[in-house]
Design a protein around this nucleic acid. Structure first.
Lengths: 102, 102
DNA sequence: CAGCTAATTAGCTACTTGGCAGAATACTAG
DNA sequence: CTAGTATTCTGCCAAGTAGCTAATTAGCTG
């Protein structure tokens, strides 16, 4: 599957978006991540794997913890893709566009 | 499923993104849409249903044709969601942000 | 009405996914 | 080495999807 599809697929789940929102505020361990959800750990681990496959999340290693971190690159690609459609989502795009190209 | 998940799911397929790209240039019938793909009509019709379920596409009626049109609302929601992560995808977000809030 | 074209629906197969439980791995602490 | 904690891996099941063919609906035209 191509990068953009992987990313959109990863984002197409509320649990995974919530995980991303949490990681946007800083590194968190898997247990801490799982805590607010009504899900078993292996399930959260699976969601993380989907996010990792998309490159949206990476995991480090500190003792037996594997702190998760958000990775920006795929979001940049999404925003690039979105930009081609700005005429459809940004009513004031022409003013903004005018400004940016100046 | 929630709106954002439906939208991301619909976008997580190259064929469906290509369909959207085509529709961004104007209304097209289903047959015209299917033509560039190596897919049978029912398959394209199914993809269209996914896009419609997400609200990204609507179909009109002109005789026996059902011209498809792109709908902006879900893309707006995506761009709103993306905005919360601009720190992660837009290196110059702070300058832009500063401009927009002024 | 009969015949034509446009498009969808139904039904099938193969594959993927989201959830779980239970076993396995990785590392720390004693 | 043993016990304990953090995390992942392996199977399992139910549900969903992408593709196909064949059949059906909707509307035009002779």
């Amino acid at each position: 599957m191509d990068q953009l599809s992987l990313t959109f697929h990863a984002l197409a789940d509320p649990t995974r978006r919530a995980i991303l929102a949490r990681l946007a505020q800083g590194e968190v361990t898997v247990n801490e991540l799982a805590e607010p959800f009504d899900l078993k750990l292996p399930t959260v681990s699976k969601h993380l794997k989907v996010l990792q496959r998309a490159g949206l999340v990476s995991q480090g290693r500190r003792a037996q913890w594997r702190p998760c971190r958000i990775e920006p690159e795929p979001l940049k690609e999404v925003s690039k893709w979105m930009w081609d459609y700005r005429a459809f989502w940004d009513e004031s795009f022409d003013r903004l566009d005018e400004f940016l190209t100046r």
